[in-house]
Every structure is written in C-alpha cells, then in structure tokens.
C-alpha cells in the first residue's frame, strides 16, 4: 500500500485540480468535461454500490449536471462559498475537482475529503460545505454570506423543490432580504421529492417563491449549460454588486433514482427526463468530445483506484 501522503498529494494538488476541472480549456470543453466527470463519477458510485463495494447511501444528480456546472463556474472558487445538500456530488466536483477524495469519502477512507467522517452528504472542502438536513443549510448560507460580505464574496446555496416545504427556508429568505445579504438561492426543481411528485405536496409557484420578500428572481426551464451559466453569471453579478439576495430557479430533471434503487416513476416519465439530458445538448457543440470522455473515464478510474488503496477510516 502506498503512503497516505503520496496518495493525498496525487489526489489533491492544485495543478491536478485545475486539469480535472479543465480550467485551461475553452468554455464549452471545460463545461463538457465537468459535466461528463460528474456523470461518470456518479454512475461509478451506483456501480460500486450495486456490487457491494460501497456502504451507506448516495444521492446522484444524474441529469442535473448542467445546473452544478453552470452555476459554480459563475463563481470565484477562491472567494465565494457554496452550500449544498444530500445530492451534493455534482456541486462538489464542479467546485473542487476532487474526485479521488470524494470517492474515498463515500468509501469511508482516510483519503476522504473529511477523512471518512462525513460520507456522501457531509462534505467540506475550502469554501464548500454540504449537510444532510433539508432546509437547515439555508440560514447558514445567509450567515456565511453576511460574514464574508465585506470581502465582496457571495454565497450560493443549492436547494431542491422538496426543500420549499421547510420553514427554515422562508426565515432565511426574510433575513437575507431585510439585511441585504449577498446570497444566491438556487432552486433545482426536478419535480419530485424522493418518490413524491411536487404536485401532491407543494402549493403555489416555485419560480416566484422569493418575490414576496422583495428578492429578485431569475428563472430557466431547460438543460443547456451555456444558458444556465449565462443566467447564473447575471444573478451572481447582481448579488455581488448590489449586495442583495437573488433567487435562481432552474426547472430540471433527475434521470436517476432518489438514492440507489428507489425509483417508482413510470418508464414514460423516466424517458421524458432522459429527453432533457444536458450532456448530448453540449456534446454536439464540442469538437473533441470523445477525448474529453476518455480523459474523464481515466480520472474516475484513477480516483477509484486511489480511494480503494487508502486505509479505512476508524478511530
């Protein structure tokens, strides 16, 4: 077994991170690489679960990659803060490029980004945080945005349609508005909370949810990462320069199950979700898509291998 320091160095050096995120590529290539990387990583996680190589649970964002990539690339990774939730792998990879330490974390290995303590939905890396309590991260995002306001930083908090059932969200919208807090609420509306369609549990419009608080809203229905990035950039610019909160609503589709195998949707409904897959939309506009895909597969292969060589976290 290789030394942990060597593994960690391989998994987390700054140069690797930039390469993994494709930060020196054209914007389309960069976004495609990040989306494919998220897709491959999450598909691999599901494979590893099905073969019994992983413990616990995972919530994949397959189908929603364009949201993570479009929004996070509108941020300054060294200055701004990101809060995410149980479905956080896509956001995490787009922010950090830390694929090996994500796999290691989900595998409960010491190479994990939290040394195997947090697992799939409790990640922390630089200014990225995730937690598994619905709505609980919303006031934290208001607090982190308030705390870093003088630095010109913004905080983004990702929530799902299901989280609009939580009271903490509305307390947060109110405080963000009344205190002029530079926080961007990003609602990824995939129309379903675990197995329950939103029509059964949620009243009113989600795209205009924040307007009664005097919070400016941005809305998008689609899966083109370039559109999402352009809209998110507008929203982030507004939040940063006006020091005001904003609400970015994205109508999206979750292609995969809620967690591992708990999909009760009809085949037709899942097919409708697949029809809005963001990857093919961008692929047609990227010249060297196949190269990017092989690079991503190699990154995932190497990450899994590194993670599996690391010691299991305990005590």
């Amino acid at each position: 077994m290789r030394g942990l320091a060597e593994l960690a160095a391989k998994a987390g050096s700054r140069d690797d991170e930039n390469a993994v995120l494709g930060l020196d590529l054209s914007q389309a290539e960069q976004f495609y690489q990040q989306m494919v990387l998220i897709r491959y990583a999450e598909e691999r996680l599901l494979d590893l679960f099905s073969t019994g190589a992983l413990n616990g649970t995972t919530h994949t964002s397959i189908g929603q990659e364009a949201n993570a990539v479009g929004v996070i690339n509108a941020l300054d990774r060294s200055l701004d803060t990101v809060w995410s939730h149980h479905r956080c792998h896509g956001h995490f990879i787009a922010y950090s490029g830390q694929v090996a330490s994500l796999f290691a974390e989900v595998m409960g290995r010491t190479l994990g980004v939290c040394r195997g303590r947090g697992g799939s939905q409790h990640l922390c890396y630089r200014n990225f945080y995730s937690n598994g309590i619905q709505g609980g991260i919303a006031p934290l995002a208001v607090g982190s945005a308030l705390g870093d306001r003088a630095k010109g930083a913004v905080t983004v908090v990702f929530i799902g349609d299901g989280t609009t059932g939580e009271g903490a969200l509305y307390e947060s919208l109110n405080m963000a508005a009344v205190w002029n807090v530079p926080v961007l609420f990003v609602l990824e509306d995939n129309g379903i909370a675990q197995t329950t369609p939103k029509e059964l549990t949620l009243a009113g419009a989600l795209d205009r949810r924040a307007e009664p608080f005097g919070i400016r809203s941005f809305a998008y229905d689609g899966a083109d990462v370039m559109d999402i990035h352009a809209l998110a950039s507008d929203a982030v610019r507004y939040v940063r320069h006006e020091s005001r909160p904003a609400w970015l609503y994205i109508r999206t589709e979750r292609i995969g199950p809620h967690s591992k195998g708990d999909d009760t949707r009809s085949p037709e409904r899942i097919a409708a979700a697949r029809a809005r897959d963001p990857l093919p939309i961008l692929r047609s506009r990227v010249a060297n898509a196949a190269d990017i895909e092989s690079r991503c597969m190699a990154i995932v292969d190497s990450a899994v291998s590194l993670a599996q060589q690391a010691p299991i976290a305990r005590g």
Partner: peptide, 23 residues
C-alpha cells in the same frame, strides 16, 4: 448587533454561518 425577526432557528443558523466564517 442585529435585531432579528422572530425566527429562532434561522437566527442560530445565521450565527452558525457567521461562526464558520471566523466570527
């Protein structure tokens, strides 16, 4: 000093966010 709305959960949440940022 922030006088807050009647939002005990929200207030402590905001404080947690501030604490993580060094306050």
């Amino acid at each position: 000093v922030w006088t807050t709305p009647i939002s005990e959960g929200g207030i402590v949440g905001v404080a947690n966010g501030l604490a993580i940022k060094g306050w």
